[in-house]
């Protein structure tokens, strides 16, 4: 969490994360270039750069898209999610080098503007095999640029988490465009079973993981409790909630997290104001509900971030009858003070 906006709020883990990104990127580029120069030495430098960075960007995009669902399925992947935006920006840089070199190589120094040339040098838009695949890569690059340039908390706060999230969901459109860019472009000429299988495998892994994650999310949404009283919804037994942790339920079509801590219970809206992280999968640390994605914190008694931070989430009233936990489905205004339910009394 940070109060003012700096280019990067560095910490130990971010530095380690970025070092691994840099090592990985250098390893790929050096290996690709070395193998090409040794076994296919007649290559040109421009082609080497275009291919090395293009394939690197695709590999990085696959890793980026895998981290999301993997972190939903296994919390040990959460550290990879924490600084994923740096991986995204790095991937955009690789894609930009690929796209920039390609536009210059294929379209610059001609009789028309390079961008105009990109759209008009091949007009076979009605053909699948002859389709102007570079246009697809260009649109993907524009999306990646929009995402990379807004990969900062300043834009997250000013665009609102909802719009920011929608903008960044465009990565799936970019991925689709890139798949077609490769299959209608490079694979039309550089046909290799190995590369085609590798791309198909990557697509299947990403799609499969997202489907599995979707099924898991639906399961959470089914945990809705039962009404014993029109105003109170019975959701679980106290013992079902682990100490300093929460259990998530869907109430009035909204996910709510009920936390157990210091012999008390509190319920807040499950969605973090930062990036929409699942607060119910977080933990009570220093008396605050801590989001598992980026560590944003909220006080369980009122859903407010501790001062001087200003984020607020909706809060819910609870009651206990015997060992059963009941929740009032109507949310109270964000930041409303609600006395936590004491379990022992």
């Amino acid at each position: 969490m940070g109060l003012d906006y700096q280019l990067v709020l560095w910490n130990k883990h971010k530095k380690t994360y970025d070092k691994v990104i840099l090592i990985g990127m250098l390893l790929y580029i050096i290996l690709f270039a070395s193998i090409t120069l040794v076994f296919n030495s007649e290559t040109s430098i421009e082609t080497l750069v275009i291919r090395a960075f293009g394939t690197l960007a695709i590999l990085m995009l696959h890793i980026i898209l895998i981290i999301g669902p993997m972190a939903r399925l296994n919390t040990r992947f959460l550290p990879l999610l924490y600084n994923r935006r740096h991986l995204g920006v790095s991937m955009f840089i690789a894609a930009l080098i690929h796209g920039g070199f390609s536009i210059f190589q294929f379209h610059a120094l001609g009789d028309v503007n390079p961008i105009y040339s990109l759209f008009t040098s091949n007009m076979d838009y009605d053909s699948l095999t002859n389709f102007p695949f570079q246009v697809l890569g260009f649109f993907a690059l524009l999306i990646l640029f929009a995402m990379a340039s807004t990969s900062h908390d300043f834009y997250l706060a000013n665009l609102s988490a909802k719009i920011w999230k929608r903008l960044h969901m465009l990565v799936y459109i970019a991925y689709t465009l890139i798949i077609f860019h490769v299959f209608l472009g490079a694979f039309q000429q550089e046909t290799s079973l190995f590369t085609i299988v590798a791309m198909c495998l990557g697509f299947l892994i990403i799609t499969g993981l997202h489907i599995i994650t979707g099924i898991k999310e639906v399961t959470i949404d089914k945990q809705q409790g039962t009404y014993g009283d029109p105003n109170w919804l019975k959701v679980c037994d106290i013992d079902e909630i682990e100490e300093d942790r929460a259990k998530i339920f869907t109430v009035n079509n909204e996910r709510v997290a009920i936390f157990k801590y210091e012999d008390k219970l509190s319920a807040i809206h499950n969605v973090c104001k930062h990036q929409g992280g699942p607060l119910g999968e977080g933990k009570i640390i220093d008396g605050c509900i801590t989001c598992p994605w980026h560590g944003y914190q909220y006080l369980p008694s009122n859903g407010q971030s501790p001062p001087p931070f200003t984020e607020k989430v909706a809060i819910y009233e609870l009651k206990i009858i015997g060992s059963d936990v009941y929740i009032k489905p109507k949310a109270l205004a964000e930041g409303t003070e609600v006395i936590p339910i004491n379990i022992s009394k």
Binding site: L27, Y28, L31, T36, N40, E42, R51, L59, E190, F194
Partner: peptide
């Protein structure tokens, strides 16, 4: 991941068609 990076670099670099000696 590093192993994957090596494998993908090997696959994509070795499967390029031979460049001519122009």
């Amino acid at each position: 991941t590093l192993f994957l990076i090596v494998a993908v670099a090997v696959i994509f670099s070795l499967t390029q068609s031979t460049f001519k000696n122009s």
